[in-house]
Design a protein around this nucleic acid. Sequence first.
DNA 1: ATATGTGCCATGTATATGAAGGGTACATCT
DNA 2: AGATGTACCCTTCATATACATGGCACATAT
Lengths: 127, 127
Amino acid sequence: MEIAIDIDDPMPLFAQLVSQIKHAVGSSALAPGNALPSIRQLANDLDINAKTVAKAYRQLERDSIIQTRGYRGTFVHPDAQANCTIDLDAIITGKLEATIIACRADGATDSEIRIAFSNVMNNKKGA
Amino acid sequence: MEIAIDIDDPMPLFAQLVSQIKHAVGSSALAPGNALPSIRQLANDLDINAKTVAKAYRQLERDSIIQTRGYRGTFVHPDAQANCTIDLDAIITGKLEATIIACRADGATDSEIRIAFSNVMNNKKGA
DNA sequence: ATATGTGCCATGTATATGAAGGGTACATCT
DNA sequence: AGATGTACCCTTCATATACATGGCACATAT
């Protein structure tokens, strides 16, 4: 598998990694069970920080695209192909959109919605 | 009616105004039909900017707590007492809270939720 | 010893937002 | 003339977040 990082791309580096690995799995360039390069190895190859690669791997594992097995390395998840068609972003975007529309219908301004959202995310109690 | 502003209070100035006026209406210190000080007058009394007072008045009018009648001044809305018991902030906070909990249950990270929220608020299409 | 993933500490940069203030101008009516 | 609410332009400051980076440490198994 070839992974290329474009520094000039407005997409964050870790997101480029996620996207490319997902695409590789979707096109069967990476089959379930295949080993992926280690975090440190890939970071070294791409000349980026290991934390950035780790972040990408963490998200991919959360989506069950890959599996990390500690000292044994990282592998493509058995159900990777099925799971990589699930667009979590589209799901939560849809839910948020519906809620925001409802709030606007209640007469709330966008500013108030943003404040309330921030409060909820930070577990702050409403004023 | 007495209005006091506390610069050291973390609550924004305009929010302090809104809160105190709402409270005055709720406790019948301000009855429907009563006149409120003009924007410039109140700003001068409290030694704050007229824009800040105007912002508070704008929000109060949106919630039908007060009515502005142009050159005639600003008055307490006929249905002020009923409307000031409606806590719009609590309503939208509740809606957002439920949606955010659902998104978290879907496995979304807080960061992803924030990004998606920002995209929806800005009418940006999902990546 | 070496490599694995993972954790926590920290930094700096950039962007977006809110809050507050300053200034000017308008149409309106008294 | 003077007061009313309102609209537009602008700046300044503080805050929050995302992104990327760096160092250090851990338990694990080879």
